[in-house]
Design a protein around this nucleic acid. Structure first.
Length: 424
RNA sequence: GGAGGGGUGCUAGAGCGGUUGAAUAGGUCAGUCUUGAAAACUGAAAGGCUCGCAAGGGUCUCGGGAGUUCGAAUCUCCCCCCCUCCGCCA
């Protein structure tokens, strides 16, 4: 959500931003609705002022006749007031609906473009491995080495179901532990959090996932929902709270199971671990003071943290800046990290790093008192730390050997009992 | 699941139809006193919306929503949350 005052004063900027994001939106309707809102509000408040004034005077009146007359007048006023309030309610409904559609303005450094083709590579790291054999895909590797069972996964869990087994499961534990250790040792300012995935509807409304993504989210028979990312509960943790300036920036490493229906992607990545209905993720979240420069600084930091992890695993990757059309409603700028997948001969996304200014926190009402004594909405940012099991794809494929075995990256060995290979 | 009790400001806690944005106490901040501190004393202090160049004004907010009333923190209904007891499960 953006500030209505800002929208009024920067209508063209907002409209251009929407255009860059390829989102159909025109602030004109919203401003019209806001005019109506203000007009009604002024009228209503005038009536309320009169009501308050009379209700102060009324008990002081001695004469019964005077009293009765005044009460009669107030009855009429009350009816008028109620009618106007009813009108305002209608206007507010429209106003809120429109407010929720206003996209945040993308940063100037965001490239133009209408598909992910236009995403711009800003960095590459590591060497793309050359194999003197045809590299297998992760499904074949895992099935051969008994690291996963997709067939039984489908039988037990349904479409996109999977079991991780043996070193497949061990690898997942190891990577998570590696990530936790990395943050504990190198980034101790991050506090650890494990958050609920089962959340109330209001929580998803607050974070802006509902009503837009209704189809994408699992719902329980108690009308609760299964969150698709830790961002939802961890941001909601701070909803309606006023933080102290000294508490900022708040940095968190958050663990949660994630659930996604993948309703719109029936034909995409249907096999293996690429796109599954349930998985575990460690997510980095930052709340910081309301300054563009500070947001940008943290955005770069979040990216580097993730890169650090990938580099320690020695996986080749690149970073892209998402183009306008690839940005979500609230995002100002987004980097994706994509790690090389040999069997597909391309990079595939593993991390998504965005900042939002106060777009999320305005809706969630996360504030702090700034040095100037003013209440401000914090800025918010997030990036994946590591998402399981997707990264197993790149890990296994890039480290596969001709004999079908897999070499375990050095940093993970201590978490796997010193093992160097899987399947040797 | 059953039976009760309760949700008030930073905190504790009054108020239970009419100058209550809200007593009182504690905490916080500023000042007086002091070499410094403590104590004591004095004073300050909520947020949203809105009008205004500003000073300042209006309005809303006592868990959330709806209602009764000329007027609601106070009465009624619904929802959420917390506590106690019983049951159930581990």
């Amino acid at each position: 959500m953006l500030d209505i005052k800002f929208i009024r004063e920067n209508k063209d900027l907002v409209n251009e931003g929407a255009k860059k994001k390829h989102i159909k939106f025109d602030a004109t309707d919203l401003i019209k609705a806001d005019d109506k809102r203000k007009e009604l509000l002024t009228e209503i408040e005038k009536m309320r002022a009169e009501q308050n004034e009379v209700s102060f005077r009324l008990p002081q009146l001695k004469e019964a006749g005077q009293k009765a007359e005044l009460i009669g007048q107030m009855k009429i006023l009350k009816e008028k007031l109620q009618a106007e309030e009813e009108k305002l309610k209608e206007v507010m409904k429209e106003w809120q609906l429109l407010m929720l559609q206003v996209p945040n303005i993308p940063d100037i450094s965001v490239p133009d473009g209408d598909t992910d083709e236009a995403n711009k590579e800003v960095k590459t790291w590591g060497e793309i491995p050359k194999f003197d054999f045809t590299p297998k895909d992760h499904i074949e590797i895992m099935e051969r080495l008994d690291l996963a069972d997709f067939e039984t996964g489908t039988k037990v869990s349904g479409f996109r179901g999977y079991f991780l087994k043996n070193e497949g499961a061990e690898l997942e534990f190891a990577i998570m532990q590696l990530t936790v250790d990395l943050f504990r040792e190198k980034h101790p300012e991050y506090s650890f959090m494990i958050v609920p995935s089962l959340v109330k509807r209001e929580t998803l409304m607050g974070t802006g996932y509902l009503p837009q993504a209704e189809e994408e989210i699992y719902k329980t028979q108690d009308a609760d929902y299964l969150s698709g990312t830790a961002e939802v509960p961890s941001m909601s943790y701070y909803a309606d709270k006023t933080l102290k300036k000294e508490e900022l920036p708040k940095k968190m490493l958050v663990f949660s199971p994630c659930f996604r229906r993948e309703a719109g992607s029936y034909s995409k990545d249907t096999k293996g671990l690429m796109r599954v209905h349930e998985f575990y993720k460690l997510e980095q979240i930052i709340l910081c003071e309301a300054s563009h420069e500070v947001s940008v600084k943290h955005h770069e930091e979040l990216l580097l943290n993730a890169e650090e992890l990938i580099q320690s695993l020695k996986l080749p990757y690149h970073v892209v800046v998402n183009c306008g059309a690839d940005l979500g409603l609230g995002q100002v700028k987004k980097y994706d990290i994509e790690i090389w997948v040999p069997s597909q001969n391309k990079y595939r996304e593993t991390h998504s790093c965005s900042y939002f200014h106060d777009f999320q926190t305005r809706r969630l009402n996360i504030r702090y008192k700034d040095a100037d004594g003013k209440m401000k909405f914090t800025h918010s940012l997030n990036n994946t730390a590591v998402a399981m099991p997707r990264i197993l794809i790149q890990l296994l494929e890039n480290n596969q050997l001709a004999d079908g075995s897999v070499k375990i990256p050095e940093v993970l060995r201590k978490y796997m009992g010193g093992k160097e290979y899987i399947g040797k």
